[in-house]
């Protein structure tokens, strides 16, 4: 993790090893997506509103995780830990909702 993104040669300033551009690009990207999500919220897309909002949030999250948190540079173990978090979160949601959405369900023998 955090090997410099590029190595600078002796004459170059250290800042060349830790480029600024990706961070600024992500910053503006996140700002833009925030403006987008707030604006789109006022447009009636029916049930798609939530989907779009979550999709935009997902993209923002990816930008933070991949660029700000350097996951791609951090090795397999960090990837595995990050993925495990997502996986077990989904398990928590899915199996809990599995109860709630089937409460009204009538079983075949009832």
């Amino acid at each position: 993790m955090n090997q410099p993104a590029t190595t600078s040669s002796p004459g170059e300033p250290a800042s060349a090893s830790y480029p600024l551009r990706p961070y600024l690009l992500v910053f503006f990207g996140l700002m833009g997506l925030t403006a987008l999500t707030t604006t789109v919220a006022y447009v009636d897309l029916g049930f798609l509103n939530t989907t779009v909002a979550l999709a935009i949030a997902g993209v923002k999250a990816l930008l933070v995780v991949l660029i700000f948190m350097h996951v791609p540079h951090s090795g397999k173990i960090v990837w595995a830990l990050a993925s495990a978090g997502l996986l077990f979160l989904i398990i928590l949601f899915l199996l809990t909702m599995n109860d709630y959405v089937t409460r009204a369900m009538v079983m075949g023998w009832e």
Partner: peptide, 18 residues
């Protein structure tokens, strides 16, 4: 082990399907 917790709730009002 993370997939089975509902077996503590068979009698408490959980849906039959779950």
């Amino acid at each position: 082990g993370f997939l089975v917790w509902g077996h503590h709730m068979f009698t408490t009002g959980q849906s039959v399907f779950a």
